[in-house]
Amino acid sequence: MSDIVIDRQAAIDDQHLPSQAQLTQWVGDVLAGHPDDPRRELTIRFVDADESQTLNRDYRGKDKPTNVLSFPFENPPGMALPLLGDLVICHAVVAREAEEQHKTLAHHYAHMVIHGTLHLLGYDHMDDDEAEAMEQCERVLLAALGIADPYAT
């Protein structure tokens, strides 16, 4: 999907962050399942634990860093912009989770980007039915990339 525009921002210096090509592939895989949605632009910002914690506290009321935060863009009335929103990903949390869960860092990043992009599209996991629908989308998308089910026990 060449029409995807990702503003990749790194507020940290780490050579282990996903490349622009990886981000475009993962986001493109999600958006391919939503061909009628014209929104194709987003920002993905990689941050440290302090910035993640501040944002998580200020926007979600949880005073700790988290793996990914999703901020969907809301079009002003009467304007149709192609903006999907922003993902903020904390490298320290993703790296720690990957190690704890015995996953490669790239596979866990793929999961976090796919998960966050689904949130930007309106998916949620606040109740069991929503969670199952969202997790099933993630499983299918990750399997197509050769990545194991992240929810398998």
Rank of each mutant, 00 (worst) to 15 (best):
residue 2 S to Q: 06
residue 6 I to D: 04
residue 7 D to P: 06
residue 8 R to V: 00
residue 12 I to C: 06
residue 12 I to R: 03
residue 16 H to S: 03
residue 19 S to P: 08
residue 19 S to H: 10
residue 21 A to K: 01
residue 22 Q to M: 03
residue 23 L to V: 05
residue 26 W to F: 04
residue 26 W to S: 04
residue 29 D to Y: 03
residue 33 G to E: 07
residue 36 D to P: 00
residue 37 D to Q: 02
residue 38 P to A: 06
residue 40 R to W: 12
residue 41 E to L: 02
residue 45 R to C: 05
residue 48 D to I: 05
residue 48 D to M: 06
residue 49 A to F: 10
residue 51 E to K: 00
residue 51 E to G: 00
residue 52 S to A: 15
residue 55 L to M: 14
residue 55 L to F: 13
residue 56 N to W: 06
residue 56 N to S: 01
residue 56 N to Y: 01
residue 61 G to L: 00
residue 63 D to M: 10
residue 64 K to M: 11
residue 66 T to S: 05
residue 69 L to S: 06
residue 70 S to P: 14
residue 73 F to N: 02
residue 75 N to E: 14
residue 76 P to M: 03
residue 77 P to V: 15
residue 78 G to H: 11
residue 78 G to E: 14
residue 79 M to I: 08
residue 80 A to D: 09
residue 81 L to M: 14
residue 84 L to I: 11
residue 86 D to N: 14
residue 91 H to R: 09
residue 93 V to C: 09
residue 95 A to R: 15
residue 96 R to W: 04
residue 96 R to K: 15
residue 102 H to L: 07
residue 103 K to S: 08
residue 105 L to G: 07
residue 105 L to V: 05
residue 105 L to N: 06
residue 106 A to I: 07
residue 112 M to C: 14
residue 113 V to R: 04
residue 116 G to A: 03
residue 116 G to T: 10
residue 116 G to Q: 09
residue 119 H to E: 15
residue 119 H to M: 13
residue 120 L to D: 10
residue 121 L to F: 08
residue 123 Y to N: 04
residue 123 Y to D: 07
residue 126 M to F: 11
residue 126 M to E: 02
residue 131 A to Y: 15
residue 131 A to E: 10
residue 138 E to T: 08
residue 139 R to E: 12
residue 139 R to H: 09
residue 139 R to S: 09
residue 142 L to G: 01
residue 142 L to M: 07
residue 145 L to C: 00
residue 146 G to S: 05
residue 149 D to G: 00
residue 150 P to W: 05
residue 153 T to N: 11
